[in-house]
């Protein structure tokens, strides 16, 4: 029997949620040899407004490209968190950026909270890599793709001048997630 693994990356337009989805789907399909599809939903604004990206990973043909029962979700804003958490399945994973998300939702899934944007800004000097830190954390928490695959996919999608920065961001994500315990 085949599996279907569903992910949702949500935040505000400009936070790189669509790119995060593309990168993990690419890691799964091109570098890990699975089937993956990525779709998105966004508003007409180039910055601001709710933005979400959904990724389906499977060993079978993927028909429906949207999430139905989510295995892992990232929420970078309170609005996105409130709006999109209802589809997370039992024992699923929700990672929230506590910089923005002050009220963690309660459900029969695991909630991991970490000040992703703050760490991006204070430790790496660029808030823009918050999405790459998140990717590292999500991969570490779920093991849905290999470290090698996600690193290759990240490096293939970022501008050459920022390779080191993004590599660091991804590693930081792996490390911080390793120490992280779910909220009870």
């Amino acid at each position: 029997m085949g599996y279907r693994y569903e992910m949702r990356f949500s935040g505000s337009g400009g936070q790189g949620m669509i790119l995060a989805g593309i990168i993990i789907a690419e890691a799964a399909s091109i570098y890990d040899g699975k089937n993956a599809s990525q779709s998105q939903s966004y508003g007409p604004e180039s910055r601001g407004g709710a933005s979400r990206s959904e990724v389906i990973i499977s060993d079978e043909e993927i028909d429906y490209p949207k999430a139905t029962s989510i295995d892992a979700m990232l929420a970078m804003t309170q609005e996105a968190c409130n709006k999109y958490n209802k589809d997370i399945k039992k024992d699923g994973v929700l990672l929230i950026d506590s910089t923005e998300v002050k009220n963690a939702p309660k459900g029969n899934y695991k909630v991991y909270s970490y000040p992703i944007s703050t760490v991006a800004r204070d430790e790496l000097g660029k808030i823009i890599v918050a999405n790459i830190i998140s990717l590292g954390m999500i991969v570490e928490l779920t093991k849905i793709v290999s470290h090698e695959a996600i690193e290759k996919a990240v490096l293939a999608r970022v501008p050459p001048a920022f390779l080191d920065l993004n590599k660091k961001a991804l590693q930081l994500g792996f490390e911080r997630a390793r120490e992280l315990k779910p909220l009870s």
Partner: peptide
């Protein structure tokens, strides 16, 4: 959806 969807 199909126009913006990505697949291999």
């Amino acid at each position: 959806i199909i126009g913006h969807m990505r697949e291999a």
